[in-house]
């Protein structure tokens, strides 16, 4: 079963906190005692989804591990904005080695903890979509295949943002990046390419795979907690909008993540040993235009001469996700 929203306490579990919930039912993020794994003063852009997603996830992992956590981090925005000498934002033991080796570094840490008999210490690895789907993919697959005791978290902002917004294998079709410019007969990123990392992770048959967004905190925290309660290789793919790379307003970060889920473009689900065991249903279904329009990377699809056929193809992707993952409730 997936995360079960509390149906009705004014805001239920939609908001970060809810004074009407029993303390045990409350989120990690509402607590004044949350670990703030990434401290203030980090240099992420205004409205950074990754900074938020990382704090959500690592705070939850800290809560689940009773503070006994070590994090490995791939090169990328998260690393650069959090640890430029002489200041670090991390409040957990943390290491950055390289762009493409984070899952292996984490394996090494987990092995060290095991050999030292420190069972209580848990290991997370984290990286962006480039570090995960592209350059770090070999190490990721190896870590999965060996079922090493690591929770790998991918913060997916759909491109190489740190280097100036280039395409990754997680960049969606039609999106403008610095290497998929909106020119020529097929403007933006092409259709039919790209990796579905969560499904590839599932194909490894690892104990736990889940997706989440920064718009559904409670679901995200539930999944981190769930993942932390399992040993072996686990994969969590978190959708984190990037105002810089997407050309969106800094205040729209969560809204866009919500729209990605509500349109069906980003299915939110969890899987155990390769089988989908739960999905977060769409609550207020939206057309993909609602998601695409606020982002300048899709601006070439709109305007005076909108590319309706391209938008229709994107809608078809959303519709296929909805069918495939059964994202709509029966009653609609």
């Amino acid at each position: 079963m997936s995360y079960q929203p509390v149906k009705f306490y004014q805001t239920g579990t939609f908001t970060v906190g809810n004074r009407l919930l029993a303390p045990v039912e409350r989120s990690v993020q509402q607590s004044e005692r949350r670990s703030n794994s990434i401290n203030s003063g980090h240099r992420a852009c205004q409205g950074c989804g990754e900074a938020l997603g990382a704090r959500y996830a690592i705070d939850a992992a800290m809560a689940a591990s009773n503070g006994q956590l070590i994090a490995a981090n791939a090169t990328g925005c998260l690393e650069v904005f959090s640890t430029p000498y002489p200041e670090s934002s991390w409040q957990v033991p943390w290491i950055h080695s390289l762009f493409g080796n984070t899952p292996a570094v984490a394996t090494g840490i987990a092995a060290a903890m095991k050999v030292k008999g420190r069972k209580e210490v848990r290991v997370v690895a984290q990286g962006g979509d480039g570090g995960t789907a592209d350059i770090g993919f070999g190490c990721l697959s190896g870590m999965f295949e060996r079922n090493d005791d690591v929770l790998y978290i991918c913060y997916d902002n759909q491109g190489y943002m740190n280097t100036g917004v280039q395409r990754s294998s997680a960049t969606p079709p039609a999106a403008r990046t610095a290497t998929t410019m909106p020119v020529g007969p097929e403007p933006g990123n092409v259709f039919g390419q790209g990796k579905n990392l969560p499904e590839i992770a599932m194909a490894h048959g690892i104990p736990y795979v889940a997706t989440a967004t920064v718009a559904d905190l409670r679901d995200l925290e539930y999944k981190v907690k769930r993942a932390m309660n399992v040993h072996g290789a686990r994969y969590l793919h978190i959708f984190v909008p990037c105002p810089l790379g997407w050309g969106s307003q800094s205040n729209d970060t969560i809204r866009l993540a919500r729209l990605a889920k509500e349109t069906g473009l980003f299915p939110v689900f969890e899987a155990r040993h390769g089988e989908v065991t739960g999905v977060l249903k769409i609550r207020r279904k939206q057309a993909v235009e609602e998601y695409l329009k606020p982002q300048r990377r899709f601006a070439h699809l709109f305007g005076n001469d909108p590319h309706t056929e391209v938008i229709a193809r994107i809608q078809a992707i959303a519709d296929r996700n909805i069918r495939k993952y059964n994202l709509l409730d029966e009653e609609g």
Binding site: Q10, V16, G17, S27, Q29, S40, A44, R55, L217
Partner: peptide
């Protein structure tokens, strides 16, 4: 109504929860 949203959604931990 103290839903903690501002406290939670700030990417910069720049909201102080007063209790």
């Amino acid at each position: 109504f103290e839903c903690d949203n501002c406290y939670g959604v700030c990417p910069d931990n720049a909201v102080i929860k007063l209790g």
